[in-house]
């Protein structure tokens, strides 16, 4: 555990909490992609199956449980409790276009051809593209609420910090996991355009609106 990894994990947690609080306080999930949230839940479920088979540390297990519960909670709020506020006609990304190729790729490129390993690989690949329905939704409506952009910034920062963590681990421990690194880089690159808008607009007190 190094500081980049820790801050990355906390940034990830902060993102999830920002989103949950936004939905809870405003009693509305307008502008949030339910499809991205379903994909993130699927990511956590398939990745953390080792919660019962492979104990790493109390920190690791507790964080896994928190991520699982909070992401499932977000899906519950969106599809049940506040379903009436869910913007489904703007959330039209076809998730099978992500899930099917990612599923195929995880069978082809993995560390080990075993069920748990393939599911872990699937979750790593899926996470890298799971934000696309949300970004697609913002590009359709042309804007995002400021709180939603804070959520996206925290979520994007998490994987960017993990990249720094991997560079650090490579030099200090000789550690590298090519699958995680390549997927993590793809994931971070997808946020670059958003990061630019966030820094040039949201941080200057303006709302995130895409140029027409």
């Amino acid at each position: 555990m190094n500081v980049f990894r820790l801050v990355g994990d906390l940034s990830h947690l902060l993102a999830i909490i920002i989103l949950l609080l936004k939905i809870w306080k405003t009693r509305s999930c307008a502008g949030v992609s339910g499809k991205s949230q379903i994909l993130f839940s699927l990511v956590f479920i398939t990745r953390y199956l080792d919660l019962f088979t492979n104990f790493i540390s109390v920190y690791n297990s507790v964080m896994k449980i928190i991520y699982l519960v909070t992401s499932l909670g977000t899906v519950y709020l969106m599809y049940f409790k506040f379903k009436a506020t869910y913007d489904s006609n703007h959330d039209t990304f076809r998730i099978e276009f992500l899930v099917v190729p990612v599923g195929g790729l995880s069978f082809l490129v993995n560390h080990d051809f075993t069920p748990l390993e393939i599911l872990w690989t699937f979750s790593i690949y899926l996470e890298s593209v799971a934000i696309l329905p949300q970004l697609f939704m913002i590009s359709k409506t042309g804007e995002a609420e400021t709180i939603t952009s804070h959520y996206l910034f925290a979520l994007g920062s998490y994987r960017a910090l993990y990249i720094v963590n991997w560079v650090y681990r490579y030099y200090t421990e000789g550690f590298f996991d090519l699958i995680a690194i390549v997927a993590g880089c793809v994931q971070t690159i997808l946020y670059c355009d958003f990061f630019y808008l966030y820094i040039t607009k949201v941080l200057k007190g303006k709302q995130l609106k895409l140029p027409a």
Partner: peptide, 10 residues
């Protein structure tokens, strides 16, 4: 250096 597995990460 051989690739290692990032299973200790979240």
């Amino acid at each position: 250096r051989k690739a290692t597995h990032a299973k200790d990460e979240l």
